[in-house]
């Protein structure tokens, strides 16, 4: 094994993998916490929806679009001062989470908005007719009905985060991407490069599989 892969130090790979898991998991947590309410807000204030608010929808929608159109690598660099203020450093796992959250939240919020829009209008109307308040409609009907879609959205977001987190390696964020750049690219250690890429592929496959299972479990259609 060590003859085939002369440059691979497994301990370092292990640390890098764990860092990637932390980056993706940590940022995903914040993205869901922020993106879910943001997606609900986008949905409710949208055209012909329960709390139609064209001005508010316009502003939020614009900000979301701007954040989504900035390439992640640029967001990563532009955000450095903000990141330092929030977590005290722009390096390591902690330093990568704020830009990941900034990039992932608008993305996820749109996915939430879309899956809420796919909920049958008749179901909303029926819930309304039962005398449900807007809060009850959202918590009791909309979110449970849209749950499979939202879980699929979380899966897509998590997978996007894996590649974003790898990119963060460029700015010294740690993780598998960092390893691939430093050894595989800068020192021509192809074996390290291959191992990290294989690990990333496995990671993405795993996420997709878990996501699909959960979607299936929560789909009652």
């Amino acid at each position: 094994m060590s003859e085939l892969l002369p440059n691979v130090r497994w301990w370092e790979i292990g640390v890098a993998s764990w860092d990637t898991v932390l980056m993706v998991g940590g940022s995903l947590l914040f993205i869901v916490l922020l993106g879910l309410p943001l997606g609900v807000l986008l949905f409710l204030t949208g055209k012909r929806q329960l709390l139609e608010q064209p001005a508010l929808y316009g502003v939020v929608s614009f900000v979301v679009n701007v954040l989504r159109s900035v390439p992640f690598i640029i967001l990563l660099i532009v955000m450095i001062p903000v990141t330092v203020i929030i977590v005290g450093t722009s390096l390591d796992v902690a330093g990568v989470i704020p830009p990941l959250v900034a990039a992932g939240t608008p993305f996820f919020a749109r996915l939430v908005e879309t899956s809420l829009r796919e909920v049958d209008r008749g179901v909303i109307e029926a819930t309304q007719a039962m005398g449900a308040s807007t809060r009850q409609i959202v918590l009791g009907a909309l979110l449970p009905e849209a749950l499979p879609g939202i879980i699929a959205g979380i899966t897509v977001t998590a997978i996007t985060l894996v590649s974003y987190a790898a990119m963060a390696g460029v700015v010294g964020g740690g993780g598998l991407g960092d390893l691939a750049i430093r050894y595989g690219y800068q020192r021509f250690q192809t074996d390290v490069m291959i191992i990290t890429v294989v690990l990333l592929v496995v990671f993405v496959q795993l996420l997709q599989m878990i996501g699909d299972r959960l979607v299936l479990y929560f789909s009652r259609r």
Binding site: D120, G122, V123, E125, A126, T127, Q128, A129, M130, G131, A141, P144, E145, L147, F218, R220, R221
Partner: peptide
């Protein structure tokens, strides 16, 4: 409260699938 005094049924049933 008014709506709670009034039941409604629909052509496409509109049950919560979840």
């Amino acid at each position: 409260n008014l709506r709670r005094e009034i039941g409604m049924i629909f052509q496409h049933f509109n049950l919560l699938s979840s």
